[in-house]
Design a protein around this nucleic acid. Structure first.
Length: 850
RNA sequence: GGGCAUAUAGCUCAGCUGGUUAGAGCGCUACAUUGACAUUGUAGAGGUCAGAGGUUCGAGUCCUCUUAUGCCCACCA
């Protein structure tokens, strides 16, 4: 009995018992580090999109980690030196916001702490949340190289940030200028254009008597700083005013506006006249540039009215609006107020309404020709990298979106007024001379002994992330071993929601700084949603915590759930039942292994495909070879879900339900079973790393499955054998169907005679055993039923229902009609015609049998 | 306002360049079950492939329009 001694697998797979140990073994093996892998193929590299160092892992991260680890493990098994470089992002605004909230709950704020203490506080916070993220990343089974773990705010990476800044400044690609910017009053900082989100809101549209005009506005208070009035050039009502400067009295507040014409003005909207406030509207700022308007700054960085607002000075925007509207009304200048739906711009980090205002900031010039790059602009370089096909974006429709975004990009505002982030590497002398340097010492030298102070602003967090693929590999040291070996990276796997924030900027920076692409392929995954398709969020309470799922069902189950059904660019609905289903599959794989091992005298590896004579063995090997081919092809095409579905079907249906059952009856299949199982574990490993590695241990090879070679299909796929197996299974199913239909208990064995010239006696017996019928040689007085290559004589009948009969008759009719159609016979390929004839014959037979 | 995506069984999704009576998993129904697995097995019910036109011998699959949903972009005050 004591085959039990051969193996030690519990009845059900309990992931909690194994996962931590297995991860430790992997980690200690050193194989996460490509330096310890034999180089048989060129390196395969993924830079892990650095999660923000602020919080916990959510399902989006879990999905990304699953896809990335899948690719990395697959490539590693194929003999590539696979490098998956992990890290975290200091996430400037997000982190600062978070810590400010904590401070607020303690009744203090960053100003009370002061800059240095505040930064210390953020560092503490980041250190603990980074540990959490690292633990959770490990829990997902991620085979990333922790020895190369990076952090955007480390000394090394800060060095590359300064290097990039200085180089760009020297090339004239970074400049300081007074322009209108997006200002978040809560963050007290500028934002880049793409960091602004829009939220539809119900607003009021105020119609204000404005000298001889009426203007409509959603923000009446800004009218205090109007310096222009725009009308359509063909608008008869206002033609005479064009070019004039008009003084306007707004309930005591006097302004002077220059009237000008612009095609952009819609004469139908509102009154057809637009009051222009250059300092506080992006559109108006552009009007001002074109028409040489004065710019009066009305609102300050705290959202308060400046002295230019006259008696409203000192009020905050909302109060000023109220008061001003009341004053207008009293002066009889408020014509009417309408309800109006418009888009409010809000901060993507804290949802606060954005205040556009003019301010002196640092910008990256995206439209400036670069002499060292054949006079191309940053924009052009970034567009070309994709247009030329050097970088592929999956799914490809995002390439168009990418072009559109790039083409419409304005200069990128990179200075932020927050404290947490890379300090802008610019120093000022007492007489405001500006010094750009790599560090303070260099700046000091350049200042020639003068006293200097550093610019207080920090850089946009995306500036440092844009360098991620190479700053993590040693750049700016272009001789660095890692940089030479691993850049450009292979795949950038990330969510489509940060295509612009991050992917686009990495391309831009890499093309400019290195003259090469940062990666070959961009794989954009979709968002993870709940069963209703809603975004998972804390406020909705519909979020699933990946760690909870791992504790309940195991990491492998979670990973498989995130992989199957996911296609690039498409959102994935995830729900607990799906994860439970994956858990069931993992357990199935476990039990298949358990059974095979229990049947085996000595568990061993079977190096070569077993030589077999039985057609059923040939068939399962043929199906398996086909599977290897398909799975490999799907993975090469980034069709992860397809690969998992094919593996799932083979494992459960073909292998467990069909072949293992056959093997139980026939016996003596040890080598075929072991041969397939061993390779099946390998194929599954990138999807289900833990359970496969645990089972693998039973082979006692002292090797890790993680670094075993990816299986290769042997020879041509034997299609004949596959058809034979499918035929046998078909007959078994038919017999079971007849039994079930006739309410014959599974334990009963009705007599049955099966005649076939193609199927061996042994296999006929097998069919009978699996279908649970008793074979007899005696004649049974009944019309045989023809299934595949067998004639079945059995005293059972499935009575065709009236509906089924009707359906069959209709089907026969449609076939007859089709075959009677000359143009079908002429146009359709002969193969198709033949198939239809065959189907007709079969259907007629089936009808006759009833 | 522009663009993109999706629409197939109660639910989540396959269905490649047009040619099996449209498939899977979950759920549902019936039956079974103490030596791989109830995290199981066997069988079954369930769809006019969003709607309307068109191309074709033939359309879930191609074209046009319509509808619904979701997303992205956009300076309509």
């Amino acid at each position: 009995m004591d085959k039990q001694d051969n193996f030690s697998l519990a009845k059900a797979y309990e992931p909690q018992l194994y996962e931590n140990d297995i991860y430790k073994i992997w980690e200690e093996s050193g194989f996460f580090n490509p330096d310890n892998l034999k180089a048989t193929e060129k390196p395969f590299v993924i830079s892990m999109p650095p999660p923000n160092a602020t919080g916990i892992l959510h399902l989006g991260h879990a999905a990304a980690l699953s896809y990335e680890d899948l690719m990395i493990r697959y490539k590693r098994m194929q003999g590539h030196q696979a490098l998956w470089l992990p890290g975290t992002d200091h996430a400037a605004i997000a982190t600062q916001t978070k810590v400010e909230k904590i401070l607020a709950s303690e009744g203090t704020d960053r100003h009370a702490l002061g800059r240095e203490k505040f930064i210390e506080r953020v560092k503490e916070f980041v250190a603990t949340s980074r540990d959490t993220i690292q633990d959770q990343t490990k829990k997902m089974g991620s085979s990333c190289d922790w020895s190369r773990e990076a952090y955007t705010f480390s000394d090394e990476l800060s060095g590359s940030v300064n290097e990039a800044f200085v180089k760009m400044y020297n090339d004239g690609l970074i400049y300081r200028g007074l322009r209108i910017v997006n200002w978040c009053p809560r963050c007290a900082s500028t934002l880049a254009d793409d960091e602004v989100e829009y939220q539809e809101q119900q607003a009021k549209l105020y119609y204000i008597k404005y000298g001889p005009f009426v203007v409509a506005t959603t923000r009446p208070e800004t009218k205090l700083a109007d310096t222009g009035l725009a009308v359509h050039p063909d608008d008869e009502r206002y033609k005479d005013y064009i070019g004039q400067e008009i003084e306007i009295d707004l309930a005591g507040h006097k302004i002077t506006v220059k009237v000008f014409a612009d095609q952009e003005v819609d004469p139908e909207f509102g009154s057809g006249a637009i009051g222009v406030t250059p300092a506080h509207s992006v559109v108006d700022y552009e009007f001002a540039q074109k028409n040489n308007l004065k710019i009066i700054k009305l609102i300050d960085e705290q959202g308060k009215i400046l002295a230019s607002g006259g008696k409203y000075a000192g009020l905050d925007v909302q109060e000023a609006r109220k008061k001003f509207v009341a004053d207008l009304e009293q002066a009889g200048l408020l014509v009417k107020v309408e309800d109006y739906a418009n888009n409010l711009s809000i901060c993507y980090r804290c949802d606060t309404a954005i205040e556009p205002l003019t301010s002196e900031q640092w910008f990256v010039a995206v439209d400036k020709k670069i002499p060292s790059r054949q006079n191309k602009t940053l924009k052009e370089l970034a567009i070309e990298a994709v247009k030329s096909g050097q970088i592929k974006i999956l799914p490809s429709r995002f390439e168009k979106i990418y072009y559109h975004w790039m083409e419409n990009l304005y200069d990128w505002c990179i200075s932020r007024q927050i404290w947490w982030g890379h300090r802008i590497p610019v120093w000022y002398t007492a007489d405001q001379k500006l010094i750009v340097a790599h560090d303070e010492a260099e700046a000091q030298k350049l200042a020639g002994g003068q006293k200097i102070s550093q610019d207080p602003d920090t850089l946009d967090t995306w500036f440092s992330s844009a360098l991620w693929t190479f700053s993590t590999l040693g750049w700016p040291n272009v001789e660095a071993k890692d940089f030479l070996k691993f850049h450009p990276t292979s795949v950038m796997e990330t969510g489509y929601d940060i295509l612009f924030f991050w992917v686009a900027r990495m391309i831009l920076m890499s093309e400019y700084l290195l003259g090469t692409k940062p990666f070959e392929t961009v794989y954009l995954h979709g968002m993870i949603r709940d069963k209703e398709g809603k975004k998972m969020s804390k406020s909705l309470g519909n979020g699933i915590d990946p760690i909870d799922m791992i504790n309940l069902y195991g990491t492998d189950a979670l990973r498989l759930s995130l992989i199957s059904g996911a296609t690039p660019g498409a959102d994935l609905k995830l729900y607990e039942e799906k994860i439970a289903g994956s858990r069931n599959f993992v357990n199935k794989l476990w039990n298949i292994s358990r059974f095979i091992f229990s049947q085996t005298e000595h568990i061993h590896q079977v190096a070569l495909e077993p030589k077999v004579t039985d057609k059923l063995d040939q068939a399962i090997l043929a199906k398996f070879n086909k599977l290897i081919k398909e799975v490999t092809e799907h993975l090469d095409k980034y069709e992860f879900s397809m690969a998992s579905v094919k593996l799932y079907q083979f494992t459960w249906t073909d292998f467990a339900d069909s072949y293992v059952e056959i093997a139980k009856k026939q016996g003596n299949k040890e080598d075929v079973l072991l041969y397939i199982l061993e390779r099946l574990l390998k194929l599954w490993h990138p999807f289900l790393p833990y359970v496969t590695e645990v089972i693998w241990k039973q082979f006692n090879t002292q090797t890790l499955l993680m670094v075993e070679y990816w299986p290769q299909a042997q020879g041509k796929v034997d299609g004949q054998a596959i058809l034979y197996l499918d035929g046998v299974v078909g007959v078994i199913s038919r017999l079971r169907e007849l039994k079930a239909e006739n309410k014959i208990a599974p334990s009963e064995f009705p007599f049955c005679k099966i005649v076939s010239s193609q199927v061996s006696v042994e296999h006929l017996q097998l069919i009978a055993d699996l279908a649970r019928v008793k074979l007899t040689d005696k004649d049974i007085e009944i019309e045989p039923e023809k299934i595949w290559q067998c004639s079945i004589y059995i005293n059972l009948k499935k009575a065709m229902s009236a509906k089924e009969k009707e359906e069959l008759e209709n089907y026969i009719k449609s076939l007859e009609l089709k075959l009677a159609n000359d143009s079908f016979i002429q146009n359709a390929p002969p193969q198709v015609v033949e198939e239809n004839q065959k189907k007709l014959a079969e259907s007629k037979q089936k009808l006759a049998n009833n």
